[in-house]
C-alpha cells in the first residue's frame, strides 16, 4: 500500500501549472486453485496493476478533462499515460460542471475485509487447504 501511495504521489507531482490531476492506482495478485476428486485440476497465479490518470484544466466555459490509463506500474508507461491524458485535454469539450472531488475531511476507515493470513500462506499450504476442503465436501 505504501508503495502505491508513493507511486501516486510521484505521478501527481508531474502535473503542470494550471492542471489538476487525479490518479487512481491499483495492484493485486490472484491465486486460483480448482480441485476435483482429490486432485488439482487447475492452478493459476496472476498479478495485475495499473494507473488511471485524469487531468483537468479550467477554461472559459468550464473545465476540460483528459483521461488515459496504463495497465502497468512501470515509470515509462506511466509517463506515456500522463502525456496522453494531457493530449486528450486539448480535444475535450468544456463543461461547467466537470470537477474533481475534494477531500471532505472524513478520516479513512480502517477496514478488515480480508483474512490477511492468506497472504503469508505458501502456495503448497493453499493447495493443501483446497484439497482438504474438497475432501470434506465429498465425505459430508
Amino acid at each position: 500500500m505504501n508503495d502505491l501511495n508513493e507511486l501516486v504521489e510521484g505521478v501527481l507531482g508531474r502535473a503542470d501549472d494550471g492542471e489538476a490531476m487525479e490518479v487512481f492506482a491499483s495492484a493485486g495478485t490472484e491465486v486460483e486453485i480448482k480441485v476435483y476428486d482429490g486432485r488439482v485440476e487447475n492452478l493459476a497465479r496472476a498479478a495485475s496493476g495499473g494507473v488511471g490518470i485524469r487531468i483537468l484544466r479550467e477554461g472559459a466555459a468550464g473545465a476540460r478533462i483528459g483521461v488515459a490509463w496504463t495497465g502497468s506500474l512501470d515509470e515509462n508507461a506511466i509517463d506515456r499515460a500522463v502525456s496522453e491524458a494531457r493530449d486528450n485535454v486539448r480535444v475535450a469539450s468544456e463543461d461547467e460542471f466537470l470537477a474533481f472531488a475534494r477531500p471532505d475531511g472524513v478520516a479513512a476507515a480502517s477496514l478488515e475485509l480480508t483474512d490477511l493470513s492468506v497472504r503469508s500462506m505458501s502456495l503448497d499450504d493453499k493447495v493443501a487447504l483446497v484439497v482438504e476442503t474438497e475432501r470434506l465436501q465429498r465425505v459430508s
Binding site: 487512481f24 492506482a25 491499483s26 495499473g50 488511471g52 460542471f97 466537470l98 470537477a99 474533481f100 472531488a101
Partner: peptide, 24 residues
Amino acid sequence: DYLRARSAGHGRSGNGRRQGYQYL
C-alpha cells in the same frame, strides 16, 4: 455522483463508483 450532484445542485450520496483504474 459528483458530476451529477454538481449539475443539479444536490449533495453527493457516495454512489460515484468505478470498476478500476481503466474506468471513469
